[in-house]
């Protein structure tokens, strides 16, 4: 246990590097490819991830040549509307950072204000520190980060959490990467009033809303994974649904579509349960028809709240 190897971990400086080989051995290529196939749309995000991956690989190579010693600032902000894939991407990002050796463990700890901020004096600091310690070696994802800052209440404990976060983001850059996420406008305002965060975050990534076509593609992909399929009429009904739903309140992009599909499956199950008199085959049990979608409230002028 106390062998030379375990006690010292100094990195050796080399004379030459092979970027292509480093890239291949890191397994990052597979993550990027998987990102491309598993996530529909999000082109600007995918481009940014590729660029970031290139930066990381080059930085690692420069380190090997002894050109850099300072830890790279990797804290990020993901801004975009709900259901645009921020949480999903944070998981991939943790994996990517781990494969490249920028975090030691690669797990994701996802929190909101309530996990960081306490209820009474002296409660916040230990709470925030516990979360930070749990995230060390991985990525800390703070959803709706702007709720930490409540300027209208000068005694708000959020400020204490912010100060500890900033300190650790600065002093423990080797130990964890922090990703702040939330709506674009609110994030912009948050950074405006918290210059400390703005200056510690190097990568701002924006998540655009999905187009209706992309949402339809996401729906079909999701159903395929669950071994369901849509009849041609059902596809038409679903595109109509998406067109109506996206202008309604509480629309949450891919999440709303996933929820709509869950409800369609429920109606499908009830329909075949009520209709069936004889034996059913696999095809009948996995084919969603237009009636399963058209009976949604959205088509009767109502709202799907999720």
């Amino acid at each position: 246990m106390c062998s030379e190897e375990v006690l010292g971990e100094e990195q050796e400086i080399v004379e030459e590097v092979d970027l292509a080989k480093d890239f291949k051995e890191s397994g990052v290529g597979e993550i990027l490819d998987e990102l491309d196939t598993s996530l529909t749309g999000l082109e600007p995000v995918k481009t940014r991830i590729r660029e970031t991956a290139a930066l990381l690989i080059v930085d690692k190579a420069r380190r090997k040549l002894g050109l850099v010693n300072e830890p790279l600032t990797l804290h990020m902000s993901f801004s975009g509307n709900p259901g645009t894939g921020k949480t999903t991407l944070a998981l991939k990002m943790a994996d990517l950072l781990h494969k490249l050796g920028f975090v030691r463990k690669g797990h994701l700890v996802s929190v909101t204000r309530d996990d960081l901020v306490g209820q009474y004096i002296g409660h916040t600091a230990p709470k925030t520190k516990e979360v930070l310690k749990k995230a060390m070696g991985g990525v800390l994802f703070i959803d709706e980060a702007y709720y930490l800052y409540r300027p209208e209440n000068e005694r708000d404990y959020g400020q204490e959490a912010i100060e500890i976060l900033l300190q650790v983001m600065e002093n423990n850059r080797d130990d964890l990467v922090v990703i702040l996420a939330g709506y674009k406008d609110k994030m912009a305002k948050f950074f405006e009033s918290n210059p400390g965060f703005r200056s510690r975050i190097a990568h701002h990534i924006e998540f655009p809303d999905y187009t209706s076509d992309e949402l339809l593609e996401i729906a079909q992909k999701t159903l395929k994974e669950q071994h369901y399929k849509l009849t041609p009429q059902a596809i038409v009904a679903l595109s109509d649904y998406i067109r109506l739903r996206r202008d309604q309140a509480h629309f949450a992009n891919a999440r709303s579509i996933r929820n709509a599909l869950d409800r369609a499956r429920l109606r499908h199950a009830n329909r075949i349960f009520n209709e069936s008199i004889g034996l059913l085959n696999a095809d009948q049990l996995s084919t969603i028809d237009d009636v399963d979608i058209l009976s949604s409230r959205v088509f009767k002028g109502g709202i799907d709240n999720f």
Binding site: R104, K105, H107, L132, K134, M136, G137, V168, D175, L176
Partner: peptide, 8 residues
């Protein structure tokens, strides 16, 4: 999961 928490 990571020893950095203890060193911290």
């Amino acid at each position: 999961p990571d020893a950095a928490a203890v060193v911290y």
